[in-house]
């Protein structure tokens, strides 16, 4: 897998090609919007994949970090007079900090206690965002000031398509580098067997913690993007159902595969747009797809398809 056509480079190439070529077939701004939403969700999913695919842990409250990022760019500029881009960084720092604080004691425990801890934590964040109406606008949500660069307001699906696409490529590049770095190898060793990794001299808890922190930062930045793109945000963004959706993106696409996270995000974002005729059945279908994918396509779509192709080729 070394050389010019390593898996890492191919994945990046595919992503860059997708982002660059898709607009050629877009007939209207609506497609830009849906695609931008895909890139934004994909960024959060790629981050969550670092935790799930590499470190073998799951966060059931990841939308909480998404919400922190979103509300950072909503509250910061409006209430504290800060520039939006500073708030993106502040939100990311806050998310990383919270993840570190929450994760440190929990990740020392073996097993899947992080899932339970993050579940509680995610619901709490959503609850705070709903309750502290003076700051957050409460359950009705709050409007978000547009991102401005050099006095130019950035808005509209096309602008955000390119921004979110670029950020996603950058995020994927980071995640892929991490995969091939010593830390990434340590994480994967840990996914395979914690005991073996520990015996090999890897500080298991510390590596898991950093994976969690990184995943939180990705989600936070994605949240900031969505808030700035929509210009409006509600606490549902941080809710349990959104957390589940993010997890479903990663597992559907394929845990451990960056491209998989993007495919998972694309599927779950476009599905409701495709199923508008079957609105009544949307929820049942979504549940069924998640179950079936987990039972029969346990590797996820991208790794599963790759394996199938490899088999048919040999």
């Amino acid at each position: 897998m070394r050389g010019i056509f390593s898996k890492r480079r191919m994945t990046l190439l595919v992503l860059v090609a997708l982002v660059a070529v898709l607009p050629l077939v877009f007939p209207s701004g609506y497609y830009y919007r849906v695609a931008a939403l895909v890139w934004i969700s994909a960024l959060a999913a790629v981050g969550l994949n670092i935790l799930m695919g590499y470190a073998g842990q799951v966060s059931l409250g990841h939308a909480g970090f998404f919400g922190v990022g979103a509300y950072a760019v909503a509250i910061g500029p409006a209430r504290l007079g800060l520039a939006s881009w500073i708030c993106i960084l502040l939100g990311a720092a806050a998310s990383g900090g919270i993840a570190w604080l929450v994760g440190r004691p929990i990740l020392r425990l073996k097993g899947h206690y992080l899932a339970i801890g993050t579940l509680g934590f995610g619901v709490l964040i959503a609850l705070v965002l709903t309750s502290e109406a003076k700051w957050t606008g409460g359950p009705d949500g709050t409007s978000v000031a547009r991102l401005a660069v050099a006095n130019m307001r950035i808005s509209g699906p096309t602008a955000w398509y390119w921004i979110s696409g670029f950020v996603l490529v950058f995020g994927a590049w980071l995640a892929l580098n991490l995969e091939d770095s010593p830390a990434g190898r340590a994480l994967r060793a840990l996914h395979d067997s914690e005991i073996a990794a520990a015996l090999g001299g890897i500080d298991v808890a510390r590596h898991k913690l950093w994976a969690f922190v990184l995943a939180a930062v990705y989600a936070s930045i994605a949240g900031s993007e969505l808030a700035l793109f929509d210009g409006f945000i509600t606490p549902d963004t941080a809710g349990f159902l959104h957390s589940i959706e993010l997890v479903a993106m990663v597992v559907l696409g394929g845990m451990g595969s960056v491209l998989g996270s993007v495919v998972g995000a694309a599927l779950l974002t476009t599905l409701p747009q495709l199923l508008t005729v079957f609105v009544e059945y949307e929820q049942a279908l979504l549940g069924l797809i998640i179950m079936l994918a987990m039972i029969f396509l346990r590797l996820g779509i991208v790794p599963g398809v790759q394996r199938m192709l490899a088999r048919s080729a040999s």
């Binding site: 799930m52 073998g56 842990q57 799951v58 059931l60 097993g111 899947h112 899932a115 589940i244 997890v247 479903a248 597992v251 009544e280 059945y281 949307e282 929820q283 049942a284 279908l285 979504l286 549940g287 069924l288 797809i289 998640i290 179950m291 987990m294 039972i295 346990r298």
Partner: peptide, 23 residues
């Protein structure tokens, strides 16, 4: 399957049951 996968299956099941119930 790993515990994560099993958790996600039951979450999928709960969404499915809820979806069918509302129909």
């Amino acid at each position: 399957a790993s515990p994560v996968v099993l958790i996600i299956i039951t979450i999928g099941a709960s969404i499915f049951i809820r979806g069918v119930a509302q129909i």
